[in-house]
Design a protein around this nucleic acid. Sequence first.
DNA 1: GTTGAAAACTTTAAGTA
DNA 2: TACTTAAAGTTTTCAAC
Lengths: 152, 152
Amino acid sequence: MDQLDRKIIAELRNNGRATYAELGRTVGLSASSVHERVGKLEAAGVITGYHAVVDPRRVGLGVTALVGIQPTDTASDDEVAVALGELPEVESCYAVAGDEAFVVKVRVETVDELEHTLGRLRRIDGVARTRTTVVLSTRFEGRPNNTGLDQG
Amino acid sequence: MDQLDRKIIAELRNNGRATYAELGRTVGLSASSVHERVGKLEAAGVITGYHAVVDPRRVGLGVTALVGIQPTDTASDDEVAVALGELPEVESCYAVAGDEAFVVKVRVETVDELEHTLGRLRRIDGVARTRTTVVLSTRFEGRPNNTGLDQG
DNA sequence: GTTGAAAACTTTAAGTA
DNA sequence: TACTTAAAGTTTTCAAC
């Protein structure tokens, strides 16, 4: 991965639909070269995908919460993580240091649904307790941090 | 926003680089129609952008932490949020219920840098204390939850 | 890495229900 | 209004260099 790759990645993080021709113009390569480089970055697992970002409220997911998952003494973290992944309302799942095994981000339509989801989380085998932090507003989210990409 | 819009959004969440022609084939519309619909969804703020997703470890951001921000008595939440946004290592920022004003997600290269970043967070005017949860592993992240999009 | 060319896609305009 | 087709311009993609 050289400087040009980093530049291409930074561009694609800002605009995931940039054309290879556009990228070529910004980094000073032919579209073919960019195309090949991007293919290699994808194959190498550096670029893992492309997603449209949607305003959650506009698609009926107005309630967000961060939930700490405290495990039982006998819990298998991997099994708990798999179970967490089976709930579609769990958008992200981090294994963390501390007395909680995981912190997950949950997105649902209503607080009623949140209550419902928390119940399901608690019923997962290996989950002892949950600790819920309700998100009041999302100031910003998933901002591309191109430290070391833009110029490194 | 009708069923077709929802289908298009779900597709673009899974593959942000899907061509209008591809989208048209999956939803049963011409490329022109899809093009027009996507333009309207973007203009309406439903689709807010497109991003390449990068494996953070592959771009030198191997350390992730979730940091609760406890405010001082006199803090202006908005001003604190702006200050948080000025640090590029703060990827996401949520205003939350509870004794913490915000929870932020921080991504840095090393634990040394994490220490450095936490110092800067604490020095923000309006920040009394921070509570840091180090992420040991990201099981999954930013999964598109297409509840209510895939089928209505 | 480049160019060149065919196929595919984008994007606008014009026309239809 | 929302769709389609048509057509010109662009981009993709795959050779060959």
